[in-house]
Amino acid sequence: MSTEPLHVALPRGPSAAAPPEEVETVAVPRPERATTRRPALAAFLRRPAAVTGLAVVALFAAVALAAPWLAPYDPDATSWTAIRKAPNLAHWMGTDENGRDVLSRVIYGARASMLAAALSAAIAAAAGVPLGMLAGLAGGWVDAVIGRVVDAMLAVPFLILAIALAAFLGPSLTDAMVAIGVSAAPAFVRVARGAAMDVATNGYIEAAVSLGNPPWRIALRHVLPNIAPPLLVQATLAMGIAIVAEASLSFLGLGQQPPEASWGSMLNAAQRFMTLAPWLAVFPGLAVFLAVTAFNLLGDGLRDAFDPRAR
């Protein structure tokens, strides 16, 4: 962005109706477009916990993307000579009941979790944000109807709604992601509605309305960019929730199906061999815990960074 000063025309005399030749220009500092973003970035970077969260999320994303190159073994390759081996130099996290390398499966499991996190949050945002904005900006009966629907969805606890949806849609990772996304949408409706109502009271929205902008343009060009910070925080927290939800559904057998690796389904299998191979229960659970903690740290950090009072 240019930092050149703006040349603003100022009338020389007391009357604004002075002829053009009498107008002189003075240099005033160019307003910083990112005045609200840069302090937020600085505030975010000052929080070690938030930066650590971002780094760990980035690490998990990198592991998920580079799984074929990082995994030491084929995650689905069974070996009758390596059944339930404790962690050792050849298999850092040991092997499972079919002789598969646990480390390789944890690495591939990151793919299911990160994919579930990203897609579920995207589905929830795609469904929830337009509805929330519509409710917040339209008000009246539209707001009342959307509010009642959201209340009804929130009346069913998150995981039970996701289980019910997954039960009827069918057990698969894709359907689990849809179920999680739909179940998480009401939270986005609430956040978008509140933020949109808040933004709608600003003078620039009034100005945009009086200039004759159509409602869709006001919503997309003026409201949406200004409600992005709370939505970003909600999306980050929703991704953490989605990772636990995906692991929970896979643990119950409603998510990723064998032999594909998923942290939840690995924990399900580990239950049967708890006394013989306790390491099977440790590493996938630790991966879920670390990933969710990282998303929560990142979400908390973003919320504090965007909140001027917390700065």
Binding site: S248, T275, A281, V282, V288, F289, V292, N296
Partner: peptide, 21 residues
């Protein structure tokens, strides 16, 4: 933070291992 982030079914499995087994 750990309490919010940890999946409860995993803690259940670990506690069965420790306390019961």
């Amino acid at each position: 933070l750990a309490g919010i982030s940890v999946p409860n079914f995993w803690i259940g499995i670990l506690l069965i291992l420790l306390v019961c087994v």
